[in-house]
Write a protein that binds this DNA or RNA. Structure first.
Length: 684
DNA sequence: CTGACTCGTGTTTTT
DNA sequence: CACGAGTCAG
């Protein structure tokens, strides 16, 4: 019976996809080129496993974002709904999410056995940096003669050691040679950092993986965790790191029930210690691996594929793949030379509107760029013209200072020993700085009994009138049973609002953000769920944060290339395709880095289904680096657009492409800018 | 010890 | 231009 249903449904898979979807229990590696229906294959594989009788809660699906997991499971549901197998919500039991989120979930269950408080809180990157700073002050490493590495660098070094499973001297020598002098201090710093985290019952991103690994080190616990799952499926395997690979091999030692999917040509996370070796060496690591290659592309037109195939063919190394398509030839991609950034924005908007006129929704179009700030000018122009957009990547709301302040209050209530949250919350008050807040947190640690020690604290006059309201707030938040999340946030806001007004120049928009935050509260079961989710998978876009999107509303997509991974649009505009931007001049230090930038370029171009525009401004008024803002410089087209790649593009200037009317306008503007800059340059 | 101030440096991508 | 480090007055 199940078999008949199977055959009915698998009809829309090609031969390779079907082989992968129906594969049995032995280790399976799916090499899936861009747009080859990788998600569809995984979806059918999960559905197949369930149809064959695997209980949904015995399947672990590891994806790169929670969104990807949710999308996939929704599609599994719809596949199952078309069969006579059990219906919806079966898949809600599948364990789906990122490595970090799954680690958090497992550690809440089993952490106690390895001495972990189940009420641990999670540090995001900036929290971890802050804690490192506190520890550094504790250790008196502030007054060293040479400049100490910045906290961001310290954390980067620490994370590289953890994620790549390598030792400190090696990491410093290979990736941070300028920090060689500080090696001893760093070792001391990291040791104390580990102690402080344990004391405070907090885990950073690395810890989530390390403790999961630790769980699997203990024979008894390992068996319990392993026996929980029959199948483990990993998406985007090319972007996993050494630690994650180790967790997998401990979870499925012989590779039985293990499926990994990825594309070495799209590996773009080496800065997070991801290594292509994981995917390349998978067959060696798990003898008996079946390798399935997906090469038929369903996404892009042959015209676009011809260009992208050439881009990746020029890469130094990688699995040879030749993606092909049955689609009609399609439009040749366009390489657009723009006079300057203004003209680039004008051109892109003009084209977007043209496509919309022709019936393409804004949602089906996306503007991509290397770094978040590359879109600022475009954003201003879109707002001016009342074109709605949603931006992915870049600074998240959760990372803004005022949101962090408010979250710190909640986190302190959740975990009294959370040093970072506590110090952040305490220093909000006038008269309390780093020293006093550190002492106050120490008091909590040394004397049990909630926030009692604080009732007797000696504080400067400036603090005394605010102090009782903080104590009252914490008291309320810690009530048992936990108060309604809405009221928690509301009270925290009421407490924080006056402080916010003193602290920031522009309190109004910040205050509005906090209102939004309160409105978001009902989405979460409780405070712990909210805190965990915000640390592991924060709202990614403005829209996400602003509450339920109106479905009938249309909006354009803006995204960093990294955040565009796995997605596709009818029309794609890659802007700032100039050397220095792609490849970023932060990343031209080594050949490997340049190769990764090439793959990034490849990922950007392969997002396009029907239309592809690559734009490159010739002139920048602001030099990419340096303090002189008013000088201009000339940019080179990205080095990845070699002649043999460019052959697959139609080349022209933005003014021609945009048509007669735009021509005058753009030229006048360019001339104006040119003169303006000349006049200014007389004075610099 | 805190908080307002100045000076100099360096600037990506994200779980 | 923004952020960190260093300086100095309460």
């Amino acid at each position: 019976m199940a078999k008949a249903a199977d055959q009915g449904k698998l009809r829309d898979l090609n031969e390779q996809q079907e082989t992968a979807a129906r594969h049995g229990d032995s280790p399976l590696l799916i090499i899936a080129g861009a747009g080859t229906g990788k998600t569809r294959t995984l979806v059918h594989r999960v559905a197949h496993l369930i149809k064959q009788g695997t209980a949904p809660d015995r399947i672990l699906l590891l994806t790169f974002t929670r969104r990807a997991a949710a999308d996939m499971l929704r599609r599994v549901d719809s596949v199952l709904r078309n069969t006579d197998i059990r219906c919806t919500s079966t898949t809600r039991k599948v364990w789906g999410g990122t490595f970090h989120a799954m680690a958090a979930r497992l550690l809440r269950l089993y952490g106690k056995s390895i001495g972990l408080e189940p009420g641990f809180t999670i540090l995001d990157r900036s929290d971890s940096e802050d804690l490192l700073d506190v520890v550094r002050t504790d250790l008196n490493l502030t007054k060293t003669e040479r400049r100490f590495p910045k906290k961001g660098t310290c954390l980067a070094i620490y994370s590289a050691c953890v994620n790549a499973q390598r030792n400190l001297p090696e990491v410093i020598a290979q990736q941070f040679p300028w920090c060689e002098d500080a090696a001893d201090d760093l070792r001391q710093l990291f040791t104390a950092y580990v102690d402080r985290k344990a004391e405070a019952a907090v885990l950073d991103y690395g810890d989530l993986l390390l403790f999961w690994q630790g769980l699997l080190h203990d024979e008894l616990l390992a068996r319990r965790v392993r026996d929980r799952f029959d199948h483990v499926l990993v998406d985007e395997y090319q972007d996993t790191n050494g630690l994650q690979a180790d967790i997998l091999s401990r979870l499925r030692p012989a590779g039985t029930g293990l499926t990994v999917v990825g594309d070495d040509a799209q590996s773009i996370y080496s800065f997070r210690a991801a290594t292509v070796r994981n995917i390349l060496d998978f067959p060696k690591h798990f003898p008996g691996t079946t390798v399935v290659k997906l090469e038929q592309n369903y996404r892009s037109t042959p015209a676009i594929l011809a260009a992208t195939n050439q881009v990746i063919a020029e890469a130094a190394e990688g699995f040879a793949k030749k993606l092909w398509s049955q689609r009609a030839a399609g439009h040749k991609p366009q390489l657009v030379n723009c006079e300057d950034e203004d003209e680039q924005a004008d051109f892109v908007i003009q084209k977007i509107l043209e496509h919309r006129e022709a019936g393409l929704q804004l949602k089906q179009q996306a503007v991509l760029f290397r770094t978040a700030h590359h879109s600022t000018l475009l954003e201003a122009e879109l707002s001016r013209r009342n074109i709605q957009f949603v931006k992915f990547g870049g600074l998240k709301f959760i990372e803004t200072a005022h949101v962090k302040d408010l979250m710190a209050l909640l986190r302190l209530a959740e975990n009294h020993h959370d040093l970072v949250a506590g110090m952040r919350a305490l220093t909000l008050l006038p008269g309390i700085g780093p020293k006093r807040s550190r002492q106050l947190m120490n008091d909590l640690l040394e004397q049990p009994g909630g926030f009692k020690p604080w009732h007797a604290a000696k504080l400067p006059a400036a603090t005394t009138d605010r102090w009782p309201s903080l104590l009252k707030l914490l008291d309320h938040l810690c009530r048992d049973p936990e108060p309604d999340l809405n009221s928690q946030i509301h009270l925290a806001r009421t407490f924080y609002e006056p402080l916010l007004e003193d602290k920031y120049e522009n309190p109004e928009p910040r205050s509005r953000d906090l209102e939004q935050l309160e409105r978001l509260a009902p989405r979460f079961a409780n405070r712990r769920a909210l805190l965990a989710e915000f640390a592991l998978d924060p709202p990614v876009s403005t829209e996400d944060f602003a509450g339920p999107p109106q479905l009938d509303e249309d909006y354009l997509i803006l995204s960093t290339i990294h955040s565009a991974k796995g997605l596709e649009w009818k029309s794609v505009y890659l802007i700032h395709a100039a050397d220095g931007n792609i490849p970023s001049d932060m990343a031209t230090g080594s050949a490997e880095q340049v190769e990764e930038e090439r793959r990034l370029f490849y990922v950007a171009l392969t997002r396009a289904q029907d239309w592809l525009y690559v734009c490159s401004p010739l002139r920048y008024y602001h030099l990419p680096r340096g303090p002189r803002a008013d000088q201009h410089g000339y940019a080179q087209l990205t080095r990845f657009m070699s002649t043999s790649v460019a052959r697959h593009f139609e080349q022209h200037t933005a003014s021609c492409a945009a048509g007669e009317q735009r021509l005058d306008n753009a030229h006048n503007k360019a001339r104006h800018n040119h003169i303006r800059n000349h006049v200014k340059s007389l004075w610099s």
